Simulated assay, not measured.
Amino acid sequence: MGATVSPIANLQLLNRHNYEDWSFQVKLYLLAKDVWDVVEAATEPPTPEDGEAEFSAWRKNNAKALLAIRTCCGDDTYPIIKAITTAKAAWDVLAEELKPSDSEEIKPFDSEELKPSDSEEGHNNNDDESDVKYAPLYDSLKRGDWNAAKEFIDRHEEALTHRGSSSGGTALHEEALHNVEELLKLMTEEDLEIQDDNGCTAFFYAFAKRNGPNSCQNG
């Protein structure tokens, strides 16, 4: 039987009609937990003969990822992976079974819809002199220049949690999708809970940009 409560906030358990939304959110969760590598691995998993340390690390991460995937399945989808013992196989089987074969391409929406109006109170970058310091980071992310952004973060680690994006959020809010995987690797779970002026977490922006506008319900 699948879990009655998902470990991911506001996630609807997987059924036979919501695979695309579900897989997107679960992938972000596994990235944040730093176990997505075992799911997307293109090679066979290590064995004890490959080295006890390597095998032990894989086994631990595989268990974390597999548990998350299983507990995010509903009663009608859990049986599909009930007997599967690796996260990669479980993920692949669910995709083969449930991913729509002829889904339409989802167009990203204009993030301006999520920004507060000029008449509303919010984060004002012009009033915060520290934003000038971090401007190169946000400029690099807007250009899609991850190398420049990473170089800045290496020099200013605190920039990861600085709320200086266009929405009053962190660098991850600004980045949303382009290099989201790289930023997730650098941020802690507490960092990911930071909200912008709209009360939205970066996860909401990433989800909304992929699936279209929706009301912000605190991430």
Rank of each mutant, 00 (worst) to 15 (best):
T4P: 03
T4I: 12
N10V: 04
L11I: 05
L14V: 05
L14T: 09
L14D: 03
N15Y: 00
R16I: 09
R16G: 14
R16T: 15
N18H: 10
Y19G: 15
Y19D: 12
E20L: 15
D21W: 00
F24E: 10
F24L: 11
K27R: 14
Y29K: 09
L30C: 02
L30P: 01
V35W: 02
V38I: 13
V39E: 03
E40H: 10
A41L: 15
E44I: 14
P45R: 13
P48K: 08
G51F: 07
G51Y: 02
E52M: 10
E52W: 08
A57M: 13
K60V: 11
A65Q: 01
I69A: 01
I69L: 06
C72R: 00
C73F: 00
G74V: 00
D75R: 03
D76F: 02
Y78F: 05
P79S: 01
I84K: 12
I84Q: 07
I84V: 14
T85H: 15
T85Y: 08
T86E: 04
K88H: 13
D92T: 15
E96R: 13
P100R: 12
F109A: 10
E112C: 08
E113A: 04
L114P: 00
K115D: 07
S119W: 07
E121R: 11
N125W: 01
D127Q: 11
V132N: 09
K133C: 03
A135T: 03
L137T: 05
Y138T: 05
G144W: 05
D145F: 04
A149V: 09
K150Y: 10
E158A: 13
E158W: 05
T161M: 14
S165R: 06
S166P: 03
S167R: 07
L172K: 11
L172G: 12
L172D: 06
E174H: 13
E174K: 09
A176W: 04
E181Q: 09
E181Y: 04
L183H: 03
M187C: 05
T188D: 04
E189I: 07
E190P: 06
E193K: 08
D196K: 01
D196N: 08
G199N: 05
A206Y: 02
R210N: 11
